[in-house]
Design a protein around this nucleic acid. Structure first.
Lengths: 326, 326
DNA sequence: ATGAAAGCGCTAACAT
DNA sequence: ATGTTAGCGCTTTCAT
């Protein structure tokens, strides 16, 4: 009988140095033969860590979040971590519930563009789990966060539009509790020239929202529509085209994020690009050290940049109006 | 000192009946006050289950898989399960590695459109974990699977195109190891009329792939391009428009899946729609009973259906050719 | 209705 | 270099 103790097996399975090579192979063989695989759960309990990071997103169907998630996964994977995903379906009320559950299964949490209230966010400290926030600066910087500074890029967008003669802009606003919505709106209001009128029409975060809001936006007489994000902008473009209105000839459209579709529609969408993959990478890099030791809480600010494509052009003199339906 | 044993606390936390209401509130209070939350890991070890389902996808950035994942999460959540996600980044070689790791952390696995070889797939039985496969029929039906029958919808597409006079079609093929690719191709070949010529140009699974393959497809003289999926089709449309070629006036385009963008581009994309959310739902419904008891291995076949939008139209007499660049 | 005790399958001192 | 012994923090018989 080849005795062999649990510890030895454990050492072999964990590639601990100082194990007799003979034993190593013997154990490996036996394991392979018996189809033995260490129980992750038992390892987790014993080690006091799960190797899992919980990620909360408002909506996985939004390519922005899918991309951020990919960034997190890729980076976390290099440290042997996996991602447990919770999709709140754009329902702020669901977020807390998800987080409480995620927290019990993971070593740390990454919140992508959380829609929950600031007090709720602050209350998360009680979870007593390392948390990193992406795309929203937590009040009082309670948590490390990776945010983006889009002021300069927005200012650039405004100059771009101004140069094209646009003096009536309409912002298709995002979900009520999206921090990015407030920031974008504020960046716009502080960037436009005094001669420029800025309207605001409620939309949402998805294609349908932009599609649905397009007509209301048109009614403001704006010559350029700016979507809360690219999905909203693209939804609006679709609606405009249905109405027989040509972009950018009759009306210009711009968005935020630079999701991959912005590049592949025609006309291409002018947009304030977010560093999507970096969001994910940086989020992990902030979280990772935090998992091992309570390190200093930091914040990382990335910067957005303007990408000009075909959806913005010179303002039409006569203002946009529906043409013959497509 | 209010004694209270571990067992009692456990009973309270698990809402076990037959506990003195007084004690219940006392324990609840104490827990709240101390911020006590049962360790998920310890529960997992003790209960012998993790409450986690591992999901493997080829690419989360593909809305098809994001949607399927959402379907799985939503359904699994109703049973108290969460999803651990692994994104193989369209690299078949990575899939096995991910699966082995996922298997150690989860109670069951759902593989979405796995690209790995059939033998590798068969070898998964050794993982000794309930597995359900989505969108690929496993050889020998080793695992329960949810697949789609798109033959009828493809036939319908072919009739639709034929009625428009298209007799030269070009299929922009998908990733080498995507089972869906072979199925779609085979459905096409067996559906076209004998007078119709079907070409095949290699593309891939993403927007860029369709974009890059468009010119080669044009060169075949085809009057209608059919993308492996909607992304490929839309990528091709983008390229065509760059070339000044109008869809559908000069050339028709169709795709597979019916991702949300297919509806919101202009022209809308004609496509063979996959039951995306159902894929996810059904996958969970197949897996769920399997987790508790080894039940009979079943298979569920959903059906695709054709959605006709603006990207397909009557064939142009003279054949497509680049116009003035946009 | 509650407590005591065993055990889930590992890891990590500690001893040898 | 390997074996022994305690836990990790719960759940769950089994007593009471």
């Amino acid at each position: 009988m080849l005795s062999g103790s649990k510890s030895t097996v454990s050492r072999v399975m964990n590639d601990t140095p100082n194990v007799d090579p003979q034993i190593v192979t013997r154990v490996r063989d036996a394991a392979a033969r018996l189809g033995y695989r260490p129980s992750g759960t038992a390892q987790n309990l014993s080690r006091g860590r799960t190797g899992i990071v919980g990620v909360l997103v408002p909506d996985l169907a939004n390519p922005l979040f899918a991309t951020i998630l990919k960034g997190i996964s890729a980076e976390a994977e290099t440290d042997g971590y996996r991602t447990l995903v919770a999709d709140a379906n754009e329902q702020p009320g669901e977020e807390l519930r998800h987080l409480h559950e995620l927290a019990r299964q993971s070593d740390g949490l990454i919140l992508c563009g959380p829609r929950m209230s600031t007090p709720d966010l602050a209350g998360l400290t009680e979870l007593d789990v390392p948390i990193v926030i992406v795309n929203r600066k937590p009040a009082g910087s309670l948590f490390p966060s990776v945010t983006v500074d889009s002021r300069e890029a927005v200012a650039e967008l405004c100059r771009h539009l101004d140069a094209f003669g646009h003096t009536r802009l309409c912002y298709l606003s995002g979900p009520a509790h999206a921090a990015a919505d407030a920031e974008r709106w504020s960046a716009l209001t502080s960037s436009i020239r005094s001669r420029t009128k800025l309207f605001r029409v409620p939309a949402g975060a998805m294609l349908d929202d932009g599609h649905a809001a397009a007509e209301a936006a048109l009614a403001t007489g704006a010559t350029c529509l700016i979507g809360f994000n690219d999905l909203v902008a693209l939804g609006a473009v679709a609606r405009l085209q249905e109405l027989g209105i040509t972009v950018p000839d009759q009306i210009s459209v711009a968005g935020f994020d630079d999701i991959v579709y912005a590049r592949f529609t025609s006309p291409g969408l002018t947009t304030v690009a977010m560093p999507q993959t970096e969001f994910g990478q940086e989020a992990w890099r902030l979280l990772s050290p935090y998992l091992h030791a309570r390190k200093t809480r930091r914040t990382r600010t990335l910067s957005a940049h303007l990408i000009i494509r075909g959806s913005t052009g010179p303002r039409q003199n006569s203002g946009a109006r529906p043409g013959p339906a497509a």
